[in-house]
Design a protein around this nucleic acid. Structure first.
Lengths: 147, 147
DNA sequence: GATTCATATTTAGGTAGCCTAATAGTTAGG
DNA sequence: CCTAACTATTAGGCTACCTAAATATGAATC
């Protein structure tokens, strides 16, 4: 089946792209005064359940390895992560979150969630339900994009 | 009414932020080889129905005036827009799209819409409906954010 | 076990797209 | 007319990405 040229789907694609654009701007403006940038919070959140190698971090974030290294170096200098030799492969490096890193993630998430929740509370109950239903679909679209 | 501390709303906020993050990465990867960057396409689309002043462009894009000026200069050098004195206010500048600019927008939109439509066609009819219902809500959230 | 090929990371250098602060020109109100 | 407010540009800086090249380790082959 190929519906990609369906005019309705194209129209929806256009609207979806516009939403993506709005999302980029919202994302950038969320808590700009916070101690963590958006990129740093994404990286720290990713390793908060256990250390990962640089390459895995890059892959999961959808960026190139040198870009990940750069962020990791900044986070290390800030005392939020440590780099340790991977015991199984001494070419690789395990990036592990520190206590300070965990604390920073928690406070950053709280601040940002509070900001977003403040925006969401202006929605009606029906709108909140519709939004909640759509978020998993966006994740699904993203998965198909990764390939 | 203050529901912002409602745990359910906070949970939804967290999920929404994650979707935002995914959106950022999708947006960045959409047609990276194209002749227009995402920022350029956003700006050009905005003026495709008629010239706008630099300040209006900046406001609509959610960026500062000097950032808009910078983009406009690049687009002008590429022959996609022209800058003209505003007849009513000679402090202001009208930014007008050229024929080449219009052509570039059309082809960029087609390419990007086709890419997105390709991703959307993997969704079920129900999912497409749910997504379509949520997009206006995202616009609404963004509006409340602008303030 | 030495050579060669592949993998993991870092270093070096570059770009896009934002920002703030300072400057120059234009308008409008007192 | 003069001052305050507005519009845009210039100058300089930052974050977060990129590619290409260097370094180090691991794996495979002979």
């Amino acid at each position: 089946m190929n519906r990609a040229s369906d005019p309705n789907l194209t129209e929806l694609a256009q609207q979806f792209r516009e939403s993506l654009r709005l999302g980029v701007y919202m994302f950038r403006r969320l808590d700009p005064e916070g101690e963590l940038t958006a990129a740093q919070l994404s990286l720290l959140s990713m390793i908060s359940d256990g250390g990962l190698r640089v390459g895995d971090i890059a892959k999961n974030l959808g960026i190139k390895v040198p870009s990940a290294t750069e962020q990791i170096i900044k986070l290390e200098r800030a005392g939020l992560v440590t780099r340790q030799a991977d015991p199984d492969d001494s070419r690789a490096v395990q990036v592990v979150i520190t206590k300070a890193g965990t604390a920073a993630v928690e406070s950053a998430n709280q601040r940002r969630n509070a900001m977003v929740a403040g925006m969401l509370q202006e929605l009606s109950t029906a709108e909140i339900e519709q939004l909640a239903a759509a978020l998993p679909i966006i994740s699904k679209i993203n998965s198909s994009f990764q390939n």
